[in-house]
Each structure stands twice: as structure tokens, then as C-alpha cells.
């Protein structure tokens, strides 16, 4: 075979067309740049409101991207609300304990990451629906525990007051959210461009084969859980600091697990740009609908999820180029 190759005179080591070139990062950079400029646009009288929507779009982007990182290792989780909530509650309780916010934020994230290792260890050998059900049930239980702890500890069913992030300055809050999204994007790119990509993708596409080839599934599955849930917890911190008030029912709502999942699938699974783009489109659609109906605006997610599965399995990213398998970021 190599002889035939030599005869044809073609370079045997041509770069594979999937090799990622620096140019692939341009759309991402463009997106982050636009997001950074958003507060400086002439937003008019509704500036405060629009900035809030943009803030939660960034939060949704962090959630979706962090969910996708876990999904890359073949773990399709319905526990993202749990880590979002653990971030929010962890942050609130750490502030109550007297930690400065700048310290409370990363500590809350790491704590949530630590808890995720417990879930990850238990679900290690589960797949498909068993994994999904176990993670769904995990979320319900975390909520039940927080709800049933004495009210003096975590506020019980009523909830907790959280001091406003950055003194309530919405531009500064937006900047922080932007920074954390940019950080999440960097983590996602790091996962994509290092050995982690090969480990995660191999586990997802054939766990037993991956193990036979020496991939330590325990280490990499847990690592995926840790990275993903720590980032989700950061999103939870942003939420808690922005809304001043958190309660178990809303914080651990199933919606917070559904949204990142739907967003990633709609945007394009296993990419960095896809979930971020998906978050932008869906969050705006959700807000528009939220203006006209009080309840049930999540209908968008249900519909988009069904339509994506039936007609757009590769998501928005699949529309970009007709590639058999993506070399996109």
C-alpha cells in the first residue's frame, strides 16, 4: 500500500483534513469579542434589562459548554442542575461563613467538583438510560437534602438570601460572567486539543475498546465529571450572586439540567462553539416567549430537543459545512 502511495508521488504525511488550524478558533474569538462589546452598545432605556438577559445568556453558555465537556466522555448527565445548585448554595453558605466572595467562588466550584466525584464513582459502570436515571435521581436527592436540612443551615424550603455580586453593579457582573465564560471556553479548548480529547472520545465511542487500548476509564470519566461540574458550579455562583435569593425548587429545577443538554444538542455536540451559539439562540428565544407567557416558556426546549433529534442530529454546527465528521472546534 505504501508502495502505491510512493508511486503516485503524493506526500504520505499530508496533514489530515481534520487537523485543527488556528483559523478554526476565529468564530469563537469573534463571538467572545461581540459578547465583550455588548454592554457598550447604545442599549437605550432598556439597557439594564437587556444586560440582565445577556448576563444569563453567558451563564447559559457556561452551563451548556460544561455539560458538553462531560458528554464528550460519553456521560449524558441529567445532574447538571445539582452542580449548578451546589455552586449556588456552596457560595451562599461560604459567604455566610465569612469567606470573601473572591475566595468563596472557586471554593464552591471545587466543592461541587468534589461531590461530583462521588456521583461519578457510583455511575462509573452505568450507561444509557441507567446513567440518565441515576443522575436525574441524584439531583432530586440533593434538592431533598438541602430542603430538609434545618432552616438555620441552608434556609430549608424557603431559601437563602445571597449578598449581591460586586455590589450589584450590573456592568461589573456582566464582565465577571464574560470572564468566566471565556475561562470555560479555554478549558473546553484545552480538553479538545490535548490527550483528553482522545481519551474522552475513545471512551464515548467504545468503552471496552478504549480500555483494551490502555485508556484508564476511571481516571478520565472522573476527570470529566470534576471539570464539568466545577464549571457548572461557577454558573451557579453567578446565578446566586445575581438573583440575591435562592431556593431549592428553582435552583435545582429540572429545567437547569434540561437547558444545557438541549442547548448543546441544538448547537452541536462535542464542540466548543456549538453549545455557546446554541445558548445564545435558545436563551433569546426563551426570553422572547417569557415576555408573552408567564409559565411554560420551557416549551421551547422540549420542541427544539425533539426537532433536533428528528431532523438536526448534528445541531447548528452540522449546518455550517457538510462534513462527514467535524474538525471544528
Amino acid at each position: 500500500m505504501s508502495a502505491r502511495q510512493a508511486e503516485a508521488g503524493a506526500p504520505v504525511r499530508a496533514a489530515p483534513r481534520r487537523e485543527i488550524t488556528p483559523g478554526a478558533a476565529l468564530p469563537l474569538l469573534g463571538f467572545l469579542l461581540l459578547a465583550a462589546l455588548f454592554p457598550f452598545l447604545p442599549l437605550g432605556s432598556r439597557a439594564e434589562f437587556l444586560l440582565q438577559i445577556a448576563f444569563f445568556t453567558l451563564v447559559a453558555g457556561i452551563m451548556a459548554l460544561s455539560w458538553d465537556i462531560l458528554a464528550r466522555s460519553g456521560q449524558v448527565s441529567l445532574a447538571h442542575a445539582a452542580f449548578y445548585g451546589l455552586g449556588a448554595y456552596g457560595y451562599a453558605l461560604l459567604l455566610k461563613a465569612g469567606l470573601p466572595w473572591l475566595l468563596a467562588m472557586p471554593v464552591a466550584a471545587l466543592l461541587a467538583g468534589g461531590v461530583s466525584l462521588i456521583l461519578g464513582a457510583v455511575t462509573m459502570r452505568l450507561s444509557g438510560m441507567y446513567f440518565a436515571i441515576a443522575t436525574l435521581a441524584f439531583t432530586e436527592v440533593v434538592r431533598t437534602i438541602i430542603q430538609n436540612l434545618p432552616e438555620s443551615v441552608a434556609g430549608g424550603a424557603t431559601g437563602l438570601l445571597v449578598p449581591a455580586l460586586l455590589g450589584g453593579n450590573s456592568r461589573a457582573q456582566y464582565a465577571l460572567a464574560w470572564g468566566l465564560l471565556a475561562f470555560t471556553v479555554l478549558v473546553s479548548l484545552a480538553v479538545r486539543l490535548t490527550r483528553l480529547h482522545f481519551a474522552f472520545a475513545a471512551i464515548r465511542q467504545g468503552e471496552e475498546t478504549a480500555r483494551v487500548l490502555g485508556v484508564s476509564i476511571v481516571r478520565f470519566k472522573l476527570l470529566a465529571f470534576f471539570i464539568s461540574s466545577s464549571l457548572a458550579a461557577l454558573a451557579g455562583v453567578l446565578y446566586a450572586g445575581k438573583t440575591f435569593f435562592i431556593n431549592p425548587l428553582e435552583t435545582f429545577s429540572l429545567a437547569n439540567s434540561i437547558a444545557p443538554l438541549t442547548t448543546s444538542i441544538f448547537g452541536g455536540l462535542y464542540t466548543t462553539l456549538g453549545p455557546v451559539l446554541g445558548a445564545t439562540v435558545l436563551r433569546v428565544a426563551e426570553e422572547l416567549l417569557h415576555n408573552s407567557v408567564k409559565d411554560g416558556y420551557l416549551v421551547v426546549y422540549g420542541l427544539v430537543l425533539m426537532l433536533s433529534i428528528l431532523w438536526l442530529p448534528r445541531g447548528l454546527m452540522g449546518l455550517r459545512r457538510n462534513r462527514k465528521h467535524g474538525g471544528d472546534l
Binding site: T194, R195, G206, H325
Partner: peptide, 26 residues
């Protein structure tokens, strides 16, 4: 045969080269 379906041939082999022995670099 059990190739990783979403990877190229080269990437498939890279998985083995990368994880077959500890401490390999990409």
C-alpha cells in the same frame, strides 16, 4: 472490528499510541 466510528484512521491509531503505555505525549 471495532474502530472508533467518529475518528479518522490516524486518530484511531493515535489512541493506542497515546494510552497504551503510561506517560506518552500527544
Amino acid at each position: 472490528v471495532r474502530p472508533f466510528p467518529e475518528m479518522t484512521v490516524h486518530e484511531n491509531v493515535t489512541v493506542g499510541a497515546l494510552f497504551g503505555k503510561p506517560g506518552q505525549r500527544l
